[in-house]
Amino acid sequence: MALYREKDIFERRGAANEAKRALLERFKARPAENDPQVLARKAERQAILDAREKRAIEKEKLRKEREALEAAERARREAAEAEQRRIEEERLAAEAKIREQQEIERVALELAEEAERKAKRDARYAARKQRKRGGRTS
């Protein structure tokens, strides 16, 4: 069984100093700004950024084209629907006009039939009256 030994302050300070020293050495070992490897990496990163920007521009252009096509299609569909509604309204108006004309004709026919029935009734009434008068005067 291993015993856990807590580090004292001197060991912790020594470890921190060692870490700082290693970090400083790593920083000093870094190549200079004009080193060919650094310049190559910088150029590579710039090329990646440029390519990413070009892709973003192309993607935006494609999105705008797609939106324009969708808007044109939506406008065409709405115009077709409006035309269809107009045609349907005209058809309904024509049907309503035909029904109204038929109703007028039906009412006129009923009035004519009623007037004919009334004329026949009046003729029968007048004939009956004539027969009654004829019988009294004889």
Rank of each mutant, 00 (worst) to 15 (best):
I87N: 15
R106H: 04
E70K: 08
R76F: 09
E83V: 03
A71M: 09
Q102H: 04
E81I: 00
A72C: 10
E113L: 15
E70S: 06
R86V: 02
K97A: 14
Q84S: 15
A71N: 11
A96I: 00
A71L: 10
I104A: 14
L92T: 01
E114D: 09
A80E: 15
K97G: 05
L69I: 13
A96F: 00
R86F: 04
A112R: 08
V107W: 06
A108R: 06
V107K: 14
E114Q: 14
A71G: 04
E110N: 11
E81N: 02
E114V: 02
E70D: 09
I104E: 14
R99K: 12
A80N: 10
A93M: 07
E81G: 00
L109K: 07
E113A: 09
V107C: 11
A75Y: 08
A72Q: 15
A71P: 00
E113Q: 15
A112T: 08
A80H: 09
A94S: 07
A71S: 07
A72F: 13
E105Y: 00
A71V: 03
A108M: 04
R106E: 06
E90S: 02
I98P: 03
E78Q: 09
R74Y: 11
A79M: 12
L111P: 04
E83N: 10
E70I: 08
Q102M: 05
A79S: 08
L92P: 01
V107Q: 15
R99S: 11
Q102K: 08
L69T: 09
E103S: 09
L111M: 14
E88C: 02
I98Q: 12
A75P: 03
K97L: 12
I98V: 14
K97Y: 07
E89K: 01
R91H: 02
E81D: 05
A96R: 07
